[in-house]
Amino acid sequence: MHELEARGLQMKFGGVTAIAGLDLTVEEGEIRGLIGPNGAGKTTFFNACSGRYPVTAGEIRYRGQKISGMKPHQIAAEGLVRTFQHVTLFKQFSVLKNVVAGNYLHSRHSYWGSLLRTRKTREAEAGSVARAREILDFVGLGALMDQQASTLAHGHQKMLGIAIALAAEPKMLLLDEPCAGMNSDESREMIHLVRRIRETGITIMLIEHDMKVVMGLCDRITVLNFGNEIADGTPEAVRANAQVREAYLGSQAHVA
């Protein structure tokens, strides 16, 4: 059984084909890179996996279960959680409350409990807060717990985005350009964080433009162009692939 599996996946918007018949598998425990020029369909693939947009044809399976057609909150409940390319937070919340909100799936919630503040609810709430503190310490935002999320530096905001996703206790994470807009120090910190997340047993798939990050971090890399897979393999194999070179020379960057 594959961790994540797409078969004949097609995504069309109006007349535009963003993904044209993609087959792809990710195995448990790996860090998989998803690269390709702009408009290759990387983020669209994440949108399909997370249920944000319905798939046009084909199917996606997560741990053997068909998830295409499910709603985003159902997919998150299955253990497949994503982050966003642009900073996506509950901006007016404190850092801690952001992560507590992310822990929704794993904190017992009932309306009567909320109203009457029952012992169970209070315990669940305390558990949720404790878990959120753990996660914040893990990603290195423990000291900024009480700050309002909108006041954080960009790099910290991206970290917080990942902390929110971790609070949903995923078994697999889809990271959409975790290092976008970061300076090299922040980038290094993020790479370190992604490795540590994998060590906790979470499978990771990430989109990244910075080739140094991708080549250094990923076990395997899948290359998309115009909605099709053009290469798949270890970083070395992908680097040597002529088709990949061509795709990238035709667009913006050299494969390092």
Binding site: H73, F90, K91, G113, L115
Partner: peptide, 24 residues
């Protein structure tokens, strides 16, 4: 309570709320 946190989370960012597992 928790319920309020969920509702304000939807208020703040519906997309993110959905993707953290909240049935918005």
């Amino acid at each position: 309570s928790r319920t309020g946190t969920i509702w304000w989370a939807i208020h703040e960012n519906e997309l993110l709320a959905q993707h953290t597992g909240i049935n918005v």
